[in-house]
């Protein structure tokens, strides 16, 4: 479903100069699977997911979603995905209903399809209170539900969640994780980036630990535990990162 090969992205900014945000990463994710991208802040998770959602272009390497290349077939790729991140927000001057409808129309759903789908989503995600409420007046939980509905309104085969639980309270975060699990059970391929280990433990079928643009370890949780002889994922994560930092001390 998702194939990433030697994906590289260079950036340049004042503080770090020219730097590599992604350094030739490789992974595959399949349908009915939640693929976790774990990493500390600045590891390159958001860059990787922005490339997969065609918002950014790779400097080199390839990434395909359902067989469509993110660089040369961005339009087709966008029809295959639903993208949601902690940075994405809802429109302040649109109601929940209008917002989901807007993105459904952009995805080319017919009137009937859209109406059926929206009624279904609003009921399933219990969003009736956001139907006529402007985005500016919504609570964080309401906004998150609208964002999920907006991302899945066209029923895409691939879903990309970038740090989707950041800033959410425990109840809302839990509801979101359960929604992600449900979506996985419906056969969706889900990329889920986070730096919260217990979310990964609870949800992900496979994980990649990303640090300084490189994948330090990749596999199922059991595989990682066996290879690194460490049962606790958080400890394992910490060891891998520390080992890498010792081997590659920062130059600045």
């Amino acid at each position: 479903m998702i194939k990433v090969r030697e994906l590289t992205k260079h950036y340049a900014d004042l503080r770090r100069g020219r730097f590599v945000a992604l350094d030739g990463i490789n992974f595959d994710a399949k349908a009915g699977q939640v693929y976790g991208l774990l990493g500390p802040n600045g590891a390159g998770k958001t860059t990787a997911l922005r490339i997969l959602s065609t918002v950014l272009r790779p400097s080199s390497g390839t990434a395909t979603i359902n067989g469509f290349d993110v660089l040369t077939q961005p339009s087709q790729v966008r029809h295959q995905i639903g993208f949601m991140s902690a940075n994405t927000a809802v429109y302040d001057r649109m109601t929940g209903w209008e917002m989901v409808e807007y993105f459904g129309r952009l995805h080319g759903l017919s009137e009937q399809q859209l109406a059926d789908r929206m009624e279904h989503l609003f009921e399933r995600l219990q969003m009736d209170d956001t139907r006529d409420l402007l985005g500016a007046k919504m609570s964080t939980g309401m906004k998150q539900k609208v964002s999920i509905a907006r991302a899945i309104v066209h029923d895409p085969p691939v879903l990309i969640f970038d740090e989707a639980t950041v800033g959410l309270d425990v109840l809302v975060a839990r509801a979101l994780l359960s929604t992600v699990a449900e979506l996985r059970d419906h056969g969706k391929c889900i990329i889920f980036s986070t730096h919260i280990m217990h979310e990964a433990e609870k949800l992900c079928d496979r994980v990649a630990i990303l640090h300084h643009g490189q994948i330090l370890a990749e596999g199922t949780l059991e595989e990682l535990r066996d290879v690194h002889h460490e049962r606790d994922l958080e400890e394992l994560f910490f060891q891998l990162i520390s080992r890498h930092d010792k081997a590659h001390p920062p130059t600045v």
Partner: peptide
């Protein structure tokens, strides 16, 4: 500023 641009850029709209 509001963070809605990224949402729009990842939609099918060119």
């Amino acid at each position: 500023e509001r963070g809605t641009l990224e949402t729009l850029l990842s939609s099918p709209a060119e």
